[in-house]
Design a binder for these strands. Structure first.
Length: 424
RNA sequence: GUGGGUAUAGCGUAGUUGGUUAACGCGUCAGGUUGUGGCUCUGAAGAUCGUGGGUUCGAGUCCCAUUACCCACCCCA
């Protein structure tokens, strides 16, 4: 197999046999999110590279080594979106949504691109469902977003662990980072090489290193962000937890939960499953109070989350969750000769005009082969037309078990078929 | 970017210590039987064994390289 017949690495085809799964989860999500007042927004697949450098953060792995960046024919640096939030915020600023009635509630389905090595639950082109709530600062908004997220996955039949943390505002986080650097200052020789660079770039990353030496340095004395919260951050986090408690949302506090995108502040959370491989975060999000301003908009707070749709499907498949039903073909009209074939063609159209999925022969096959095909596509009913049927202007509609009903080939054909179909 | 595993028709597999025209099931297509769908029978198409080198009289089988897929690290949804 050459390049032509191989999809690029890390991309996936969704075949006809599987699309209904996507339709199902998209449908469920739209229904629920509408009850929460969110409106869909669609933004471009590519943006100016600087949007992500500024929005996601120049220091992040995503920007440093995972973006699909190229120059267009006018030498503009363009990047395929590696995530959904930056583009949505850019659009919200550009079109003044952040100056309209606040809070703004936005949702999106989007494909994202990251140059990573593919593995279970990780692709180079993957799909996210995301939600952004702009201009609401109260802890109730944090709780609402988390609640919405939980509601969505629950509706899909997924039980997942919710991990919760707050990483503070830039002010208290700066203090905390200093404390971390100080704590590790005399322990550098015990750190893995990876953590040494983390210590420089993003000390909070040290907290979730899997290296056993690095882990052993995490003890009671290791500074915790909670102890560095300013009054506002402390109170906000407490109230958020209280709202979650009243909504009966269960969560695990994970002081080591850190997010990889620079824009997060305060509340961060993840929904995690353990049965789809190493990449078990099916949904993650948090607050980003500085992002809108950082991108040149008015000072506006925000909070949101994104779900990995491939991971959602992996989880649902692993757990045998329902994806709804795939509707089969309703009626197949078979024909025995040229004349009846013409009639079949005409009648098929009339059924389709009435909103039914109907089929007739398109391959020029013998009657037997037509019926075998009808069976393969799951046709619930068949009608066979031959010289007899055309002469008498009547035919039988038959279900899979062989039960027959006589119908007349007149202007009430559609009605008769509908009656036969619905009464069985 | 770093590691481990895998690679034979559309799919799933067999292929014995290297030995003639690479086998089987499912699927596809054509046809037969049957009362007009399941069932059943017959036949056909479809693989230069991922690709490129090497060893050998001879390679699907052994060696090297390369690519892709799977899994994990890193990181993330």
């Amino acid at each position: 197999m050459g390049l032509i017949t191989n999809a690029p690495r890390g991309t996936n085809d969704v075949l006809p046999a599987d699309v209904y799964k996507w339709h199902y989860i998209e449908q469920i999500m739209k229904e629920i999110v509408q009850c929460y007042g969110f409106k869909e927004i669609r933004t471009p697949t590519f943006e100016h590279t600087c949007l992500f450098q500024r929005g996601v953060g120049d220091d992040t792995d995503i920007v440093q080594k995972e973006m699909y960046t190229f120059e267009d024919k006018s030498n503009r640096s363009i990047t395929l979106r590696p995530e959904g939030t930056a583009g949505v915020i850019r659009a919200a600023i550009e079109h003044g949504l952040v100056n309209a009635a606040l809070p703004q509630k936005l949702y999106y389905f989007t494909n994202c691109f990251r140059y990573e090595k593919p593995q279970s639950g990780r692709l180079r082109e993957f799909h996210q469902f995301g939600v952004e709530l702009l201009g609401a600062m109260s802890p109730a908004s944090d709780a609402e977003i988390i609640l919405l997220c939980k509601c969505l996955i629950t509706k899909l039949g997924i039980k997942a662990e919710l991990q919760l943390n707050s990483i503070g505002c830039p002010t208290c986080r700066a203090e905390y980072l200093n404390a971390l650097r100080e704590y590790y200052a005399d322990k550098k020789e015990s750190l893995c090489p990876m953590c040494l660079t983390r210590l420089e770039r993003n000390p909070m990353r040290l907290l979730d290193c899997k290296n056993s030496n690095c882990k052993s340095l995490l003890v009671d004395k290791t500074p915790k962000i909670i102890s560095y919260f300013c009054g506002e951050c402390h109170e906000g986090f407490e109230k958020t937890k209280a709202f979650l408690d009243t909504a009966k949302v269960e969560y695990t506090l994970n002081p080591r939960l850190v997010r990889g995108l620079d824009y997060y502040t305060n509340t961060v959370f993840e929904f995690i499953v353990h049965d789809i491989g190493a990449q078990g975060t099916i949904c993650a999000g948090g607050r980003y109070n500085g992002l809108v301003a950082a991108l040149g908009g008015p000072k506006t707070c925000g909070i949101g989350f994104a779900m990995g749709l491939e991971r959602i499907i992996l989880t649902m498949t692993a757990r045998n969750c329902s994806f709804g039903e795939c509707k089969p073909c309703e009626v197949y009209i078979a024909s025995m000769d040229e004349k009846s074939h013409e009639k079949a063609f005409e009648l098929t159209k009339s059924l389709r005009d009435g909103g039914m999925w109907a089929e007739c022969d398109l391959a020029g096959r013998a009657l037997n082969a037509q019926l075998k095909y009808a069976d393969k596509i799951g046709a619930r009913f068949s009608i066979i037309l031959g010289t007899n049927e055309l002469e008498t202007n009547t035919a039988f509609i038959k279900n899979k078990q062989g039960a027959k009903t006589q119908i007349t080939l007149n202007e009430s054909f559609l009605q008769q078929v509908q009656t036969a179909v619905s009464s069985s």
